[in-house]
Structure formats: structure tokens, C-alpha cells
């Protein structure tokens, strides 16, 4: 599968990554190569193989509905790029 410039721009936008034209060129080739490599799988007959999403065969792992302490507001805001009082502060969201 060939990746074109438009696809690279679309993916970059979805991922919120800014790319220069030079970088776009690089990724067009790299992603095309990766996809071609993966396409080798198409040669296999997978007719009777169920899709698999999990590497382990376990299932049904739960926790009880029991309260655990939350963390302090100081710790909450340690990783916040911006805060205002008890809130996280973000660029204006227009609705």
C-alpha cells in the first residue's frame, strides 16, 4: 500500500503533530515500507482463524466497588501545564 502526502498530513493532524515538508517525505517512505511489510500477512490463509486482540488468554479481571484515597490537590497539579485555583487551566474551548 502506498501512502501519499495527503494521508501523512491527515494522520499528523489526528495525532496533533506538526511536520515539515522534508519530514513528510521521510514518513511517506517509512510508513509505506512498514505497510508493505505487514501486507505479507495477506499471503496467509486466515479463513478459519478468529481475530485475536489479546496476547494472554485470561479474562474477567475485576476490582470491587471499594473506595480508595484520592491524591492531594498539590500532587494533582504537579503535571498540570497550567492551573487556576483547584482547576486545570486550558486554552479556551469554543462551543
Amino acid at each position: 500500500m502506498k501512502i501519499d502526502k495527503k494521508t501523512i498530513e491527515y494522520i499528523a493532524n489526528l495525532s496533533r503533530i506538526k511536520l515539515s515538508d522534508q519530514e513528510k517525505e521521510v514518513f511517506i517512505h517509512q510508513l509505506s515500507d512498514i505497510l508493505s511489510y505487514i501486507e505479507k500477512l495477506n499471503k496467509l490463509n486466515t479463513e478459519d482463524v478468529k481475530p485475536m486482540a489479546y496476547a494472554v488468554s485470561e479474562s474477567n479481571v475485576f476490582r470491587g466497588d471499594t473506595l480508595e484515597p484520592s491524591i492531594s490537590i498539590e500532587d494533582v497539579q504537579l503535571n498540570a501545564p497550567a492551573a487556576m485555583g483547584v482547576f486545570f487551566k486550558v486554552p479556551k474551548v469554543i462551543e
Binding site: 497550567a82 487556576m84 483547584v86 482547576f87 486545570f88 487551566k89 486550558v90 486554552p91 479556551k92 474551548v93
Partner: peptide, 9 residues
Amino acid sequence: GADYSLVDF
């Protein structure tokens, strides 16, 4: 004119 929004998680 406020240029920010606040978030409560």
C-alpha cells in the same frame, strides 16, 4: 474576553 477554560476531572 477570557482566553481560557477550566477543567474539573
